[in-house]
């Protein structure tokens, strides 16, 4: 079993310095890794990113993050990423990483993702340049997620997790006004997850949404936005499938 701690939308800034650290210090006792689902800062400044860095430095569990729209607000996402990496976090955008938990290999593929909406009410790549670009950005994020999940499948992972900021499904948005769903997520992310396969999908962004959802392909989705889970993080216990190949090898040698 893998113990996955996750939270998004912590929106830290100098005035909230240190508020999450006491809870994060309990992580080694209850989790094998911490996923951060974006919106780690309020305005995406390096100063705010340093507050996040201090909150996660030397936690004793690996930290894997994606950025959110707030972390892009100051247009200094590369600096924000660098500050978080310096503190030891893996920061993914269309990339993947493998975390070793005992003998198990846990693959995490991540992207911020973007909006566009869901099946039956989604934006199309048509019309004004800015509208086409909106949809293209969403597609690029989803393509990056699919490619990195597929890469993990070839890297012999026991479990694979899709980490995004925007939502892949509408179920976890329940509680948000229907009118803003196209700004909260995109079905392209769910399609990427279902095409490449994953054991769990984790996202944030929808502060008034709902924790539980599922993709059409049956992948469990969890909205871990801090206002939704009402805690510093939530922990999910993910079973590790038995390695059929490895068991056979053991009995034949």
């Amino acid at each position: 079993m893998i113990r996955i701690a996750a939270v998004g939308d912590i929106h830290l800034s100098p005035e909230t310095r240190g508020v999450l650290r006491p809870a994060f210090d309990t992580l080694p006792a209850c989790a094998d890794l911490l996923l951060l689902a974006g919106d780690l800062t309020r305005h995406g400044t390096p100063e705010e990113a340093r507050v996040v860095a201090d909150e996660i430095r030397g936690l004793g569990v690996p930290v894997v993050a994606v950025l959110g729209n707030h972390d892009h607000h100051d247009d200094r996402q590369d600096e924000v990423t660098a500050v978080l990496r310096e503190a030891g976090a893996e920061v993914l955008e269309g990339e993947s990483t493998v975390v070793r938990v005992g003998d198990a290999r846990v693959g995490v593929a991540g992207t911020k993702g973007f909006g566009g909406g869901f099946v039956g009410a989604s934006a199309g790549e048509f019309g004004e340049p800015v509208m086409k670009e909106f949809v293209r950005v969403s597609r690029r994020c989803a393509d990056g997620l699919r490619a990195s999940l597929e890469k993990l499948a070839q890297e012999d992972c026991d479990v694979r997790i899709a980490l995004t900021h925007y939502s892949p499904v509408p179920e976890t948005l329940a509680g948000e006004p229907l009118e803003i769903y196209p700004f909260l997520g995109s079905y392209l992310l769910a399609e990427a997850i279902d095409t490449a396969g994953a054991d769990l999908a984790v996202h944030g962004h929808a502060h008034a949404g709902t924790e539980h959802g599922m993709t059409t392909g049956g992948v469990k989705v969890r909205n871990v936005a801090q206002p939704v889970i009402g805690r510093a993080f939530h922990v999910y216990h993910l079973p590790v499938p038995e390695r059929v190949g490895a068991a056979t090898e053991a009995t034949t040698t």
């Binding site: 999450l20 809870a23 009402g230 805690r231 510093a232 939530h234 922990v235 999910y236 216990h237 079973p239």
Partner: peptide
Amino acid sequence: VSEPSSPDHAEELS
């Protein structure tokens, strides 16, 4: 205001 405390349980995913 956001609640910064640790969770008191974990969810078992099957």
